[in-house]
Structures are given as structure tokens and as C-alpha cells.
Simulated assay, not measured.
Amino acid sequence: MKTKCILGLNEVNAILDAAQREAERNHWNITVSIVDDSGELLGLRRLDGASPMTAKISAQKARTAAFSHKETQFFEEMINNGRTAFLSAPLEGLLEGGVPVVIDGQVIGAVGVSGVKADQDAQVAKAAVAALA
């Protein structure tokens, strides 16, 4: 029987705290969402000043990263490079800012960030994931 790591409450809080520190250090108003490997929401933190729509977008980015086992930047670049047919895929959150959480080679969840420029969202998400290293 296989065993797998999971994101528990301590890990979720560590990720949320790391994302908040990175965003506040840069004066960015963002929302960060964390999902498990099935895309179910485990945690969400919307910083003061973040637009309400960032809550939905960050969760969608996290789900897409969890389902695909890829950073969502992959999909945004694919679409921007002409593969517009991919827009009809049954996924949401195809914008940069979703990053899988990988432990021992297994995706155990993902982080999604929304609120600033795409590369800045990704910067916060990667800083958050790094909190588990």
C-alpha cells in the first residue's frame, strides 16, 4: 500500500504566512489560496486592499496547478503563443500564479495567488511553497 504526504493545518498556515510576508514586503495586496491534491480548498487569505475577485481567481489558479501538476504559467504561455484552442479546456485559472506543492516527487496540493502582475503573483506563490522546504 502506498502512503502520501498531505497538507495539514500547520503546513497550510506556514504557506499562508509565507505568502503574506512576501506580499507585505513588496506592498502588494493579494489573495492566496491553498488546495489539496484533489483541488479542494484548504486555506485562503485575502490581504487588506485586495480586490474581492482575487479570492476566486487565486483558488482557480491553485486548482489548475493541483490538477495539472504544472505551474499555471505553462498554460498562459501556451495560449499566448497561439494555442488559443486550449481556452476551451474545462479548466479555469489558466493565468500565471498557480504553483504545485511537490514533496518527494508527489504533488500534494498547490498555491494560487492573485492581485498583482502575473510574475509577481508567481513570485508570492513560489515564496509560499518554499516555506515547506
Rank of each mutant, 00 (worst) to 15 (best):
L132G: 12
M53C: 11
E96T: 15
G8V: 01
K70E: 05
I108C: 08
D36K: 06
F75Y: 03
R46P: 12
A59L: 10
V129G: 10
S51A: 14
D104S: 10
K117P: 01
A65Q: 07
F75M: 01
G115W: 09
A19F: 01
V102G: 07
Q20R: 09
E76R: 05
V102A: 08
A55D: 09
D48I: 07
A66P: 04
L47M: 15
A89G: 01
I15S: 00
A127D: 02
M78T: 13
A65F: 03
V113N: 04
V101N: 03
E22W: 01
Q20Y: 00
W28R: 12
E22F: 05
K117F: 06
Q123F: 10
P100C: 14
N26F: 13
F74T: 13
N80R: 14
A130G: 04
A89D: 00
E40V: 05
S68C: 06
T31A: 14
C5P: 11
N26H: 15
A65W: 01
A85V: 13
I57N: 08
A110Y: 08
W28H: 10
E76A: 06
I34Y: 09
E71W: 01
F74N: 06
G82M: 10
V12H: 05
A65C: 02
S68Y: 03
A110P: 11
